[in-house]
Amino acid sequence: MYNKTTTLFKHNYQVSAHIVINQGGTSSGKTFAIEQVLFCLAAEAEKQVITVVGQDIPNLKAGALRDAQNIYDGSPILQRLIKGYNKTDRIFEYWNGSRTMGQTGAIMGEPAA
């Protein structure tokens, strides 16, 4: 979807496993590449619901949601596939009925703060 992808994107996009572990340091591109994959999956299949979970809203906004907005802003193709973005509820809604959303929740079995 986004006109600039990395090897990390390609590995995540082409994987057949149900669980994928991405390792790397801060600012290594993990979140960005994974979100590119999630945008592609939502655009390719109708009525998908994809949730990106963060430990709390400030961290979600500073990381995953900011990256998602940058991916969307940088991709004219993606802009045509997405009907709109509800900033309050943090939901991208696609013309095909799919949705991606940012939420807080449990991480590794621990309740969110």
Rank of each mutant, 00 (worst) to 15 (best):
R66H: 00
N70P: 00
T6E: 11
H18M: 09
V49L: 14
N22P: 04
K47Y: 13
G24Q: 06
D56P: 03
G24F: 05
L8H: 10
G63E: 04
E110V: 12
P111C: 00
T5P: 04
R66K: 14
L78E: 07
F32R: 14
S28A: 14
K10G: 07
R90I: 04
I34K: 13
N3H: 11
D56K: 02
A45V: 14
R90N: 06
K30T: 00
P76F: 00
G105R: 09
T51H: 09
S75E: 01
G109K: 09
R99I: 10
N22A: 12
I91L: 06
Q55G: 07
I77R: 12
L81S: 08
Y72P: 00
A113K: 08
A45K: 11
Q14A: 11
E110Q: 08
C40L: 14
M108F: 07
G24A: 05
G74V: 07
Q48P: 11
K4L: 13
N12P: 01
Q36D: 07
I77P: 04
I57R: 12
H18R: 15
I107P: 04
L8C: 12
G29Q: 05
V49T: 13
N22F: 07
V49Y: 12
V49H: 11
N22V: 13
D73F: 03
I82C: 14
L60Y: 02
G109C: 05
Q48F: 13
Q55A: 13
D67Q: 07
N70E: 14
M101C: 12
P76C: 07
W95N: 02
A17W: 01
Q103L: 06
F39I: 09
Q48L: 04
N96R: 03
G97V: 10
T51K: 11
A68F: 00
G54A: 15
G63I: 10
N70W: 02
